[in-house]
Amino acid sequence: MRMIVIGTGPIGGIIGGRLARAGYDMTFVDVDKEHVEAIRANGLRVDVPDSPFNISINIVLPNEIQGKFDIGFIAVRSNYTLDALVTVLPHLNENALLVSMQNGINPPLLQQQVGADRTVGMAIRMGCRRIAPGHLHTATRGHLYIGHLHGKTTPQLQTLHKLLEAAMETEISDNILGVLWSKLTYTCLGFFGSLADVSLATSCAGAANRRLLVDFLAEVVSVGTAAGARFIPLAEYNPPDLHPCNPIEKRLAIVNEMAKSWKDDDRKGPLRQIQNGIKTEAEFTLAYVVHQGEKTNIPTPLCRKLLTMIHELEGGTRQLGMKNYDELYRS
């Protein structure tokens, strides 16, 4: 069975690297020539808590792909999903699976191209990052959820589950859309924590911003609920508990409990991307919530304002700073 990974960043590289180490026939693709050249020269270096490894892999640029594949993994940021599909679709066998390993709700886009039984959504709980070209790092073993949007377990899904188990703990879900929505609430939390170059422990130290975060998460959960998402509990919180139908005291208590784990030196992924001049996934995560709110008639003033502020930070017309939370509060 031949597998291809489009995007050899932290997610595609770490999970795909584990599969390669387990002996599977893997081809990796990336557009970053420096990253590709580093891996070709020195192998893919992966720091994982159980057993760090360095492995020689077959990595190519998009125009160098050869042959057909039985499984395609899309591991690019959501901004580049359509580009990744253009790259991979000509190289898939007739009944090949197409797997989204991304943030956001991307499986419907894949399903439009290959159909329901060939589309698999994947939700990943694994903090990870790229240290340098050819060098990836995670401090957690990680956990995968996989499933078709229709919720059925097909033979192909069972085969995928078996091979992924060689890489990390994997669970088949009949509710992958609900799992992805649950993770989306946490992704949106990352954008909330990216308005200033401080940790959430600092930005939400005061009562006003702590309440602001509660109200923000209430918007996200309200939209997901109206869109039909069946949320699952996360390690940090159970999303339905943050729905505004619950008393504000209960919701504040949940955020206060979560805050105990916040660290002063923690910085969210979108913040690092903004600081490095990299476009975030806001248009495919936070904006998705806003658009779904419009469809379901759920007001999202905080999500909408935060989205505008993230765009301004990306465009250089707004500066990072605590004053941004004051402005968000006034919205």
Score class of each variant (00 low, 15 high):
residue 222 S to A: 08
residue 86 V to C: 10
residue 44 L to E: 06
residue 305 K to V: 14
residue 61 L to I: 07
residue 329 Y to D: 00
residue 56 S to R: 12
residue 319 Q to C: 12
residue 262 W to A: 06
residue 36 V to W: 06
residue 179 V to Y: 01
residue 262 W to T: 04
residue 124 I to W: 00
residue 82 L to A: 10
residue 81 T to K: 02
residue 200 L to R: 03
residue 219 E to F: 09
residue 128 C to T: 12
residue 210 R to H: 09
residue 305 K to I: 14
residue 34 E to M: 11
residue 321 G to W: 05
residue 309 M to N: 02
residue 135 H to V: 15
residue 197 D to G: 02
residue 141 R to E: 10
residue 163 L to T: 13
residue 259 A to N: 04
residue 257 E to C: 06
residue 165 E to G: 14
residue 256 N to C: 06
residue 317 T to N: 02
residue 237 Y to G: 11
residue 267 R to Q: 01
residue 30 D to C: 15
residue 135 H to E: 09
residue 284 F to N: 10
residue 65 I to W: 09
residue 6 I to W: 05
residue 314 E to K: 11
residue 328 L to W: 03
residue 296 T to Q: 15
residue 241 D to W: 15
residue 252 L to M: 13
residue 128 C to A: 14
residue 189 L to T: 08
residue 106 N to V: 15
residue 288 Y to N: 03
residue 219 E to K: 04
residue 155 P to H: 15
residue 282 A to I: 14
residue 142 G to L: 11
residue 313 L to C: 04
residue 325 Y to V: 12
residue 102 Q to V: 15
residue 90 P to L: 15
residue 295 K to V: 12
residue 147 G to A: 05
residue 109 L to H: 03
residue 175 N to P: 08
residue 206 G to R: 15
residue 272 R to S: 07
residue 138 T to Q: 02
residue 131 I to E: 02
residue 24 Y to T: 00
residue 179 V to D: 03
residue 203 S to C: 09
residue 74 I to T: 05
residue 26 M to F: 12
residue 135 H to Y: 12
residue 320 L to Q: 02
residue 93 N to W: 06
residue 286 L to M: 08
residue 35 H to T: 09
residue 252 L to C: 04
residue 285 T to S: 13
residue 97 L to S: 04
residue 171 E to V: 13
residue 206 G to I: 15
residue 127 G to S: 04
residue 258 M to K: 05
residue 95 N to P: 00
residue 281 E to C: 14
residue 330 R to L: 13
residue 207 A to T: 08
residue 4 I to T: 12
residue 62 P to D: 01
residue 241 D to E: 15
residue 148 H to M: 04
residue 263 K to V: 07
residue 103 N to I: 15
residue 227 A to E: 02
residue 126 M to S: 06
residue 301 P to A: 13
residue 212 L to Y: 05
residue 189 L to S: 08
residue 4 I to W: 00
residue 123 A to T: 11
residue 233 P to V: 09
residue 171 E to K: 03
residue 123 A to P: 11
residue 286 L to E: 07
residue 187 T to P: 00
residue 85 L to D: 10
residue 324 N to L: 10
residue 109 L to E: 00
residue 92 L to G: 02
residue 32 D to K: 14
residue 16 G to L: 05
residue 200 L to N: 09
residue 158 Q to P: 02
residue 167 A to I: 11
residue 63 N to L: 05
residue 158 Q to G: 11
residue 267 R to N: 00
